[in-house]
């Protein structure tokens, strides 16, 4: 209970800080500043690598930190049941898969709420600072896409940490997964030839939520004035397809592992 409350308070704090930082960026644009852009830039923006190494600390922090926090917060979600009371909890479930699916939906619910809070806070901050809404439909669409992409990619990594924690220690699985998560952002930092860069980005789960790189028509209306290059063929449908594939794989592996993992005295 305490953990849940602290997670949601943190979501508000992250939302406020990220939005205020991005608000400055948005309002300095010559034209086109809107609440939709603020939502997009609050947790779904990284600069496209134009030079050999492109690294913007603020953009990287606002993009990565909210996800890192929630990964850490939910990294021991399965492990807690195993470490503390696996025998008592597990044997009260109809079966292991049901236990896994209950956990999955519990995490999903919290992730949706977490990213919805961040998005809602950035909308409120936009309104409070008199930013216009270019299109209500556009705002709703962009907000929903931001939430869903962030939730899906985070869920994949939360599952990865939790499934790994059933084999190795919780701390080690958290460390390795976070390391992999951070390293996966390299295509957003290191410049390569465009075809390679585009391929690496398109297949990379952690970069799917970067909305300004997508070439959907409804996004280009907002992005084109900013001179951010859209990646050809990188659209929202593609991102959902790629993340959906990773999620299905993670869930499948999770079910396989939970069905077969033995509850013995190793670490718990």
């Amino acid at each position: 209970m305490i953990k849940k409350v602290s997670v949601f308070i943190t979501a508000v704090v992250i939302g406020v800080l990220s939005s205020l930082i991005r608000l400055d960026f948005i309002t300095n644009l010559a034209e086109g500043a809107s609440i939709e852009l603020l939502v997009m830039f609050t947790a779904n923006f990284l600069p496209y690598p134009e030079e050999k190494i492109t690294f913007e600390l603020i953009a990287s922090l606002t993009y990565i930190a909210p996800k890192l926090y929630i990964l850490i917060a939910f990294g021991d979600f399965f492990y807690d049941d195993f470490r503390i009371s696996s025998v008592y909890v597990f044997t009260r479930k109809d079966n292991r898969v049901k236990w896994f699916l209950d956990k999955l939906f519990h995490i999903l619910k919290h992730l949706v709420l977490y990213f919805a809070i961040i998005t809602a806070v950035s909308v409120i901050i936009g309104f409070a600072n008199n930013l216009p809404v270019a299109s209500v439909q556009g705002l709703l669409l962009i907000s929903s896409i931001c939430i869903l992409l962030n939730v899906t990619v985070t869920l994949v990594f939360v599952l990865l940490i939790n499934v790994l924690s059933l084999y190795i220690s919780c701390e080690m699985s958290l460390f390795l997964t976070l390391l992999a998560y951070v390293f996966a952002h390299l295509p957003a930092i290191v410049k390569r030839s465009d075809p390679v860069q585009h391929l690496l980005i398109k297949l990379n789960p952690v970069l799917q939520p970067v909305l300004p790189w997508h070439d959907d028509g409804f996004l280009l209306d907002y992005i084109q004035p900013l001179d951010i290059p859209a990646i050809p063929g990188f659209n929202v449908y593609w991102s959902f397809l790629v993340l959906g594939a990773y999620l299905v794989l993670a869930v499948f592996v999770g079910i396989r592992v939970v069905k077969t993992v033995e509850i013995t005295d190793r670490n718990y």
Binding site: I84, S85, S86, V87, Y88, T91, D265, Y268
Partner: peptide, 11 residues
């Protein structure tokens, strides 16, 4: 089933 197995605790 009701059980107690060694090394299991509570919150």
């Amino acid at each position: 089933l009701g059980l107690i197995i060694e090394n299991v605790g509570f919150w």
